[in-house]
Design a protein around this nucleic acid. Structure first.
Lengths: 151, 151
DNA sequence: CTGAAGTAGATGCAATTGCATGTATGTGGG
DNA sequence: CCCACATACATGCAATTGCATCTACTTCAG
């Protein structure tokens, strides 16, 4: 066994490492820029958008918490409290789920829909500026395809 | 002006949006898997690795906080307290920086070097399993190149 | 020299997160 | 029917983060 493979065969190659580091840093930098745009526009945290968006997409503008969880990758306890904040702001409301006493619906309100639209007015251009403007259409497609392999 | 372009010309195309969403989700999922591996191995938070690594790379195993900041993208106030934690664990120590009374060196200790190596024993295989195994070498290279455009 | 402005880093406080656990309800085997 | 176990969501508490501000220095124009 040669000296530089003594531990095992599972060490990542330089391409893999570069991909991982690049993934962490790219998301860090782009996210920071987008969040700065949000701050400038005095908008709520970016994370709110995802929940509101999932609700808008959903039939009747409502989802069970565990469904939102699966769609957004939020941890259960974080989502639970995020919903609290959205309720407090009047962007969603909780409704009883009759078929299962443990469950509930999270329903987006009109104010919630309006907020999501308002956020998109900043978010959309921000994505375009910080992602779209740096990639050709083909590159963006390719990037998305490669990232999908990591799902 | 047609109806579906009434706001402005800065909305991201679907490729761009898919790339951005893919970026957020891919990093989220991969990070969660790697962190799970860290937890299993009872290792400190992943973020510690980056700081220790930068110090190992640096000449004489030391850097100024603002240099670490630039290399890791940590916020100044977060880094300040992260260093506190590393000091408390004996992984680094602070030393005076003579040429500038405001400054300091952060120096990695032997225990710090050992910890970084121990972390890599988990981190390396984890990167390989969750990133490397899902991409060919060419794909990894391509992904890294595309992500670099977002820096 | 000196005062104004800049830079390095620390820190109080509020908000958010992570972790473990709790409460309530549902389900399935015996 | 009943008990053990699973699922849906909430919550106490400690740790981490974000934000604003503070304390040293340093630098530099005048």
């Amino acid at each position: 066994m040669s000296d530089n493979e003594k531990n095992d065969g599972k060490r990542p190659g330089p391409e893999t490492t570069a991909a991982w580091v690049g993934l962490m840093r790219a998301r860090e930098r782009v996210l920071a820029r987008i969040e700065a745009d949000f701050k400038t526009a005095a908008l709520p945290p970016l994370g709110w958008y995802d929940v509101l968006w999932e609700l808008v997409q959903a039939e009747e503008g409502r989802l069970r918490p565990f469904e939102i969880e699966a769609r957004t990758l939020l941890a259960q306890y974080n989502l639970s409290r995020l919903i609290d904040r959205l309720v407090k702001e009047g962007l969603v409301r909780r409704e009883a789920f009759d078929a299962d006493g443990r469950g509930q619906w999270v329903v987006i309100t009109e104010a919630g829909r309006a907020m999501r639209e308002r956020m998109w007015l900043t978010y959309g251009p921000s994505i375009e500026a910080h992602v779209g403007a740096r990639l050709t259409e083909a590159e963006a497609r390719q990037l998305a395809a490669l990232l999908a392999k990591l799902k």
